[in-house]
């Protein structure tokens, strides 16, 4: 009786979490932006649906905390292969969307160039502080960097041999000269950003490339089309929530 109640409660909580997760807010923004730019009835409904999602999501955001910069993906690969791809930090820019380049300086040190607001370059040095082959890697910015950031990634084999769980955590500590720029860059949704980066890591690892439509042809976009072009990341290399944010500023 008791256990039944508690399992019911926990599954309800799961559903609530799903319905009110931060990432929903991004979906909501997308739906709203899409709906509003299309002056049709579909749009109105989408905008309304978006509004509902947003209300849901923002309610939960009050309870959110730092652990939200974590994401896990199960990848179809051995821990060895996944570790190797990540351990060569020059690969990071291939799947971290806001990272323009990472130059490996020596065994543990690297120089990061990240694109901030208006595609402005922000630069810092990082060092690897923990490195267990095929298991985990941790890094953090040098103490004298303009940006205080740290990150780690773990590779855990699936118990039944169905690949490897890759779990990444990234932290940006507020404070410092560039904290405002960094905050804008991450948008209000660092959780979203890390999920998308990890999704691209999975694609790079499994398929050897990350899917893109950047640079493909299209017909005349018109006003609405242009707005949506930003939203769907056709013109910018910033992650979608930044694009959505940029949109909300021009709207």
């Amino acid at each position: 009786m008791n256990s039944r109640n508690s399992s019911q409660a926990s599954s309800e909580r799961g559903l609530n979490d799903f319905l009110s997760s931060n990432s929903l807010l991004i979906g909501a923004a997308a739906l709203m932006a899409f709906g509003i730019t299309r002056r049709s009835k579909t749009s109105l409904a989408l905008a309304t649906a978006g509004g509902l999602l947003a209300a849901n999501a923002s309610r939960s955001r009050r309870q959110s905390n730092a652990s939200h910069t974590r994401a896990t993906f199960l990848v179809n690969s051995s821990p060895e292969k996944a570790y190797q791809l990540w351990r060569d930090f020059s690969n990071l820019a291939r799947f971290m969307r806001h990272v323009k380049s990472v130059q490996v300086l020596d065994e543990t040190n690297s120089e990061w160039v990240v694109l901030g607001p208006m595609e402005r370059e922000i630069r810092w040095y990082a060092e690897i502080i923990d490195d267990v082959k095929n298991e985990r890697i941790s890094w953090r910015s040098q103490p004298d960097s303009l940006v205080q950031t740290s990150g780690s990634v773990e590779f855990q084999p699936h118990r039944a041999g169905r690949g490897t769980f890759v779990t990444a955590t990234v932290r940006y500590t507020p404070g410092g000269a560039l904290s405002k720029a960094i905050a804008t860059m991450l948008g209000k949704h660092p959780q979203f950003m890390i999920r998308e980066d990890l999704r691209r890591f999975k694609a790079l690892l499994e398929a050897g490339e990350t899917p893109t439509t950047l640079g493909q042809p299209h017909g005349p976009r018109g006003v609405h089309g242009s707005v949506e072009q930003v939203l769907f990341r056709e013109t910018t290399n910033l992650a979608a929530p930044q694009a959505a944010h940029a949109y909300s500023k021009t709207a």
Partner: peptide
């Protein structure tokens, strides 16, 4: 993509790696 678990299970229209807007 041919390489993800969906593709390897021949669930081709469920490929994990071909939608750049998967989040939507």
């Amino acid at each position: 993509c041919g390489n993800c678990t969906s593709c390897q299970d021949k669930l081709w229209s469920s490929c994990d790696n071909s939608n750049p807007n998967a989040w939507i």
